[in-house]
Design a protein around this nucleic acid. Structure first.
Ligand SMILES: [Zn+2]
Ligand SMILES: [Zn+2]
Ligand SMILES: [Zn+2]
Ligand SMILES: [Zn+2]
Lengths: 145, 145
DNA sequence: TTTGTAATTGGGAATGATTCGCATTTGCAC
DNA sequence: GTGCAAATGCGAATCATTCCCAATTACAAA
């Protein structure tokens, strides 16, 4: 939360111009506990009285994603991308099969695994994608077909 | 490869009717080393002389996915779903950021992690999704912007 | 502060993957 | 063999995302 100035630097350091839109997007994402879709972010910004177009939201998110400032993921049952601020405290999510709720889990069990892959195959690891599926607290008792 | 009869049982056990299309899809997926998109599978089946519609390919894959017979995943940079046969030898993939090649890696580093999650949160784990990103053997020397 | 230029944006159209609707066909239990 | 629910074909519809292009803006250099 050394916020304000921070976003400017983050953007500048990655050769992205500082605009009020990007600023607002980062602010919104950083506050959000959970990953959000482009559209829901768009709606949220509108509610805050920010004038922005959906295209811009998509473009900004994509730019931020390419620079590693945000994390993008697409879930096989919820066919759209969701974005979250890349708090560098690496984290993953538990996703409920039933209600689609996502819950963050900090920490990562993959450090050794990545090293293993790098040495075993000739592959330079740059990151990974991990989500755990199952039934959340509330949906526990439900069984599927 | 106790193949032939096998698919029939797999389908029947999950309350899916046995049709030549599903049979062909499973056969194709099981042989494939790498995950394939619905469309490329469709094209492949056509080449084999099988008469099928793209809708059916989508519907069948979705049905097989819901039953756990195939695995579905969507990659954030290649915006479409890919499917692979669920060899129960659990595996994951390394995906090249540059050429999009996917390479399977058998084995899983997440058993303990899942137990941890189940006990720590009140969450019933049913599965997970893991891909490792980076540069493959051939694309090694390439840097991004 | 002013100017020049490339990056960013709006808004709407285009795209492309996936799903849907509905008439027809097929699997399979009885 | 019959009957019915499930599966299919094919085209239309949907929906997220990208693209186009003219107008605006950020910001570096003067
Ligand atoms: Zn739930
Ligand atoms: Zn991790
Ligand atoms: Zn590669
Ligand atoms: Zn695994």
């Amino acid at each position: 939360m050394g916020a304000k100035k921070n976003y400017n630097d983050i953007l500048k350091n990655r050769n992205l111009k500082v605009t009020k839109h990007r600023y607002a997007i980062l602010e919104s994402l950083e506050k959000s506990k959970l990953p959000v879709s482009a559209e829901s972010l768009y709606i949220e910004l509108k509610k805050k009285g920010i004038s922005i177009s959906l295209s811009t939201v998509y473009r900004s998110l994509e730019a931020l994603y390419k620079k590693g400032i945000v994390i993008k993921s697409i879930l096989p049952d919820y066919n759209k991308a969701v974005f979250e601020y890349n708090h560098n405290e690496h984290r993953h999510h538990m996703i409920c099969i039933k209600c689609h709720k996502m819950q963050p889990v900090t920490g990562c069990p993959l450090e050794e695994y990545e090293k293993l892959i790098e040495s075993k195959f000739n592959f330079t690891v740059k990151g990974h994608n991990l989500e755990v599926y199952g039934y959340c607290d509330g949906c526990e008792s439900k069984t599927e077909d």
